[in-house]
Write a protein that binds this DNA or RNA. Sequence first.
DNA 1: GACCATATGGCACTCAGTACCCTCTGTAAA
DNA 2: TTTACAGAGGGTACTGAGTGCCATATGGTC
Lengths: 235, 235
Amino acid sequence: MTEARRPVKKPPMREVLAEAAFQLFLERGFERTTVDDIVARAGVGRRSFFRYFPSKEDVVFPDHERCLADMTALLDAADGGDPVSTVCDAARLVLRMYAANPEFSVQRYHLTREVPGLRTYELSVVRRYERTMAEYLRGRYVGTPDGPLHAEVIAAAVVAAHNNGLRSWLRSGGEGDAEAAVDHALGVVQEVWGAKDASAAGPAADDDEVVVVVASKGTPMWRVVQRVEAALAED
Amino acid sequence: MTEARRPVKKPPMREVLAEAAFQLFLERGFERTTVDDIVARAGVGRRSFFRYFPSKEDVVFPDHERCLADMTALLDAADGGDPVSTVCDAARLVLRMYAANPEFSVQRYHLTREVPGLRTYELSVVRRYERTMAEYLRGRYVGTPDGPLHAEVIAAAVVAAHNNGLRSWLRSGGEGDAEAAVDHALGVVQEVWGAKDASAAGPAADDDEVVVVVASKGTPMWRVVQRVEAALAED
DNA sequence: GACCATATGGCACTCAGTACCCTCTGTAAA
DNA sequence: TTTACAGAGGGTACTGAGTGCCATATGGTC
C-alpha cells in the first residue's frame, strides 16, 4: 500500500467563497452583489456556490450551523442544575462564537442592520436557538404547572437578554468586554426566573431556612425580586 | 368596443387577490402556487398583484399592517399606568385580530407551520410587534437602571407568552376561549415583571403599607414571585 | 368636447435557485 | 497497463419572484 502524503493543496472552497462574498458585500452592498459576482471573484463556477451555501444569505452566517450543533450537544449533556442557568450557558456559547472574530462580527452586524433580507434571515437563525433552548426547558419542566409556557417565556427572555448584551458590544465596535455585558444581561433574567443556585452552591442551605422580605404595596415587581434575590443569596 | 355596460360593483382588488390566493394555497400548497396562478384565478393582470402585495408571502398576512398601526396608536395614546400592563393590552390587540376570523386563522396557522418561507415571514412580522412594544417600554423606563435591557426582555417575554396562548388556541381549532388562554399566559409574565396594578386600581394603597413574605432558601424564584404577588394583591 | 389623475394591463428584464448532464482527476480493481 | 468507479466541480437551460417602463382604460373636472 503506497500512501501518498497529501499536503493541503487547496484552501477549502467554502472559505474561498465566503471570503469573496464578504468582500463584495462590504464593497458594493449585499443587494448589489449577485451570485455571479461572487463566483467570478472566487474563480469558480456558479453551480458550486449553491453546493456550499443553500442561499445567498447563508454565506453571511457561515458558522451558525456548527454553533447550533454545539448548543444542542451542550444541552443534551447537561445534567441537573438550574435549568435557567444551563440555558444561559447555552446562550454564552453563541456569544463566544461572535467574540472569536470581533472584526468580522462587527462588520456583519452593520451589514445585517442595513439589509432587510439579512435581518429576516438572522431572525430565523435566532429562532432556532430559541427553540432549542425552549425544547430543553420544556423537558426540564414536565409535570410543573404551565411548564411549556414557562419554557417558552424563559427561552425568549434569555435570548432577548443575550442579544441585548451582544448588540451593545457590537455597537461598541467589539472593544469592550463582551462576556461581561452578556453576563450582566443574563443576570437580570436569572434574578427573576432562575431557581437561584442554591442547589448548585455547595452544601445546599437547609430547606428550613427562611428569608423575610418587606415591601410596600405598589412596588414594581422586579424591584421586589431584586431584594428577594439578594436576601436569598446571603450566606 | 360596444360593451359599455358594466354594473360591476368593484369588489376591492386587494380582497379579490387575497381570496384567490388563499384558495389556491389550500388546494395546491403555497410553493406549488405561482403568482401567475393567483392572478389568473382573480382575473387580473400579474402586475396588479405586486401593486397590492409587495411579496407572495404578504398575501397570507393581509391584516397585520393595520394591526401594527393599531398597536402603535394604542401605545401612543397610553398614558401612565403599569407599562407592562399596557404592553399586554397591546398584545391582546393582536389576539383579537386572530380571533375575529377563527377559521381563517386556523387554516393560516396550519399553512404557516408547513411552509418554511411563511414561517420566516411570520417571524419578521412578530418581530415588528416586539420592537414596537420594546420601543414603548424603553420610553417608559428612561432613567431607570438597565431600562433598555428590561424593555427588550419584557417585550420578548410578553410576545412569547402571547404566542403561547395564541398557538394553543389555534391548535384547538379555534374552539376554546382564546382570550382566556392569552390572559393566563400574559398573567404569568405580569406576575413577574409587572408593577402590579396598584397605581391603576382606584385609590392606590398607601405607600406605607407593607407585606411580609416568608420563603425557604432555594425556592424557585417564580414561586416566590407568585406568593409576593398574591400578597401585594391583597386588599 | 378637452384635460388630468389614478388604476390597471402588458412586456421585458434581472436575478436567485434548481435540474440535469458534462468533464476532470485520482483511486482501486482486473 | 487498462478499466471501472467515485467525487468534486463546471456548464446550460429552466422556473419563478419581483421590478421598471410604458400603454391603456376609467372617472371626474373645467
